[in-house]
Write a protein that binds this DNA or RNA. Sequence first.
DNA 1: CCCTAGCTATTCAAATTTGACTAGCGGAAC
DNA 2: GTTCCGCTAGTCAAATTTGAATAGCTAGGG
Lengths: 206, 206
Amino acid sequence: MSATRLLVLGVVRMYGSAHGYQVRRELLSWSADKWANVQPGSIYHALKKMAAEGLLEQVRTEPSGVGPDRVGYRLTGEGESEFLRTLQQQLADVGDDVNASAGFLAAVAFLPALDRERAVSLLKYRLTQLKGNEASIAGLLAHGTQWGQPQHVNALYRLWQAQLETAVSWTRDLIERLRAGEYVMADEGPSFGSPGPGRPAVIKFD
Amino acid sequence: MSATRLLVLGVVRMYGSAHGYQVRRELLSWSADKWANVQPGSIYHALKKMAAEGLLEQVRTEPSGVGPDRVGYRLTGEGESEFLRTLQQQLADVGDDVNASAGFLAAVAFLPALDRERAVSLLKYRLTQLKGNEASIAGLLAHGTQWGQPQHVNALYRLWQAQLETAVSWTRDLIERLRAGEYVMADEGPSFGSPGPGRPAVIKFD
DNA sequence: CCCTAGCTATTCAAATTTGACTAGCGGAAC
DNA sequence: GTTCCGCTAGTCAAATTTGAATAGCTAGGG
């Protein structure tokens, strides 16, 4: 599940039901075009693809008055579980590539869809992985140019290392904030935890 | 010009001439599969595409003894200028999306292909842009949830901000190192500056 | 009242990426 | 001496991404 898919799924869930342009605008208002790579085409593709896979269902096609008809979508039960499953997985798993950060950022964007305890616990797990990665990079830097890489590739590793450190302290800070009661989480209010109207309650995952 | 293209072009240039698998292995040895997104298919595609565009030319197809024949490539004059142009552009321009970092990382990987003065000057330019971006993010954070985004999107902006700060100090550090004479740059040694045939491969493999 | 610009909502062809797959050969284990 | 594994080198179909193009509507300036 890519970052784009998670974002699209999550925004549709937020609205209860939504059409492509609505999703696009919401994501733009989060600057998601910057930190994820959300282009219009990708959104519409994701909507259709997930509809074909049964995660979304088409809800109605209403004339918008201005411009083309709107095609609305909402989550199916399967979409809801897939959303929660992916959200938790992206939050907890650092992943092997540095660039997988987009998936994590997407997950953070929907953090309040989880219970507070759950969120903290997943972030703590992430933290241990980040620390592990810090160790591996230290290793790469220590081996230096021993394995024939040009020496200046070290500069790259130093950047990677610094960004990992940043990630570690930001994660610590977020955990702190959650513990301090910041944000309204799924177990505490109606804002994010319960998906749209007319739909079954949140499916629990452990 | 994507990160992958720059990396492929740069590695072929390093070797004087190279075949796909050789490029792949070199990039793997830099962990470029992690920080750029270098998959085998992309490399071969980039080679063919750039050959079709006249940046590379096919050099020979020799039987390798083991496995399929090797298809060798080397840079054309146009490829050389395109390489240097892109390298400098990626180094200097922060770009609008956070994810464009891959292009920058690729550029850093070939830093010594530039003269020392030139590299420093481009990095200084980059620094001013990074500082500018820091200001914009501060703005986003200040406006807070004023514009209706869920409050926790702020957490995202804080991470973005922290990573920018990291980028700034890392860039400063790199400039310092360059000024202190670290790395052998194009105007100082035979290692990276002069491409082309007649040169032994920079990197040794066993 | 006409013209331009910009918003709405989506589609589409072309480009790129993904990663599983082929196929030959050497060496090690049994 | 044969079975299995892994390396070399690259191909390919399918999936995804890109971003330009469409077309109807409205608001505002001149």
